[in-house]
Simulated scan of single mutants.
Amino acid sequence: MIELYQRVSLNQNFPEYNLKKGDIATFIDTVPHPEGGEEGYVLEVFNALGESIDEVIVPKSAVNPLQENQILSVRSLIEV
């Protein structure tokens, strides 16, 4: 179970938010699906300096807790 304010990783891409599989965010809330579908997770996304840059809603199934055998990395938000 993912706890409130826990850092999580995405397990799929979200081009509409410029987020990619493996990006890390902080879980801040849940929202019900408006038509009874899968519950959503509200995530806060930070840049590498720890500054908040966005809040997004993704399906619960698109999020995984971080594991001790994983390592963090960085990527540019701007495509070159």
Rank of each mutant, 00 (worst) to 15 (best):
Ile2Ala: 02
Glu3Ile: 12
Tyr5Ile: 05
Gln6Glu: 14
Gln6Cys: 10
Arg7Trp: 02
Arg7Lys: 11
Arg7Gln: 04
Val8Thr: 02
Ser9Ala: 03
Leu10Pro: 00
Asn11Met: 10
Asn11Phe: 05
Asn11Lys: 02
Asn11Arg: 02
Gln12Asp: 13
Gln12Asn: 09
Gln12Pro: 12
Pro15Val: 14
Glu16Cys: 04
Glu16Val: 01
Asn18Trp: 04
Leu19Tyr: 04
Leu19Asp: 00
Leu19Arg: 01
Lys20Cys: 14
Lys21Glu: 03
Lys21Phe: 00
Gly22Ile: 07
Asp23Val: 01
Asp23Thr: 02
Thr30Ile: 09
Pro32Gln: 15
Pro32Thr: 14
Pro32Met: 13
His33Ser: 15
His33Arg: 06
Pro34Val: 09
Gly36Ile: 01
Gly36Leu: 04
Gly36Thr: 05
Gly37Arg: 06
Gly37Glu: 13
Gly37Leu: 05
Glu38Cys: 11
Glu38Trp: 12
Glu39Tyr: 08
Tyr41Phe: 10
Tyr41Val: 03
Leu43Phe: 02
Glu44Asn: 08
Val45Cys: 05
Val45Gly: 07
Phe46Cys: 13
Phe46Thr: 09
Phe46Gln: 14
Phe46Ser: 09
Asn47Leu: 00
Ala48Gln: 14
Ala48Asp: 14
Ala48Phe: 11
Ala48Asn: 08
Leu49Glu: 15
Leu49Gln: 10
Gly50Lys: 04
Glu51Leu: 15
Glu51Cys: 09
Ser52Met: 15
Glu55His: 10
Ile57Glu: 11
Val58Ile: 01
Val58Ala: 04
Val58His: 01
Val58Gly: 01
Lys60Pro: 12
Lys60Trp: 13
Ser61Leu: 00
Ala62Ile: 07
Asn64Tyr: 04
Asn64Thr: 03
Pro65Asn: 03
Leu66Met: 10
Gln67Ile: 02
Glu68Pro: 08
Glu68Val: 09
Asn69Tyr: 10
Gln70Cys: 11
Gln70Ile: 05
Ile71Trp: 14
Ile71Cys: 12
Leu72Ala: 07
Leu72Phe: 13
Leu72Tyr: 08
Val74Lys: 15
Arg75Trp: 05
Ser76Pro: 00
Ser76Gln: 03
Leu77Cys: 13
Leu77Glu: 15
Ile78Pro: 07
Ile78Ser: 12
Glu79Phe: 00
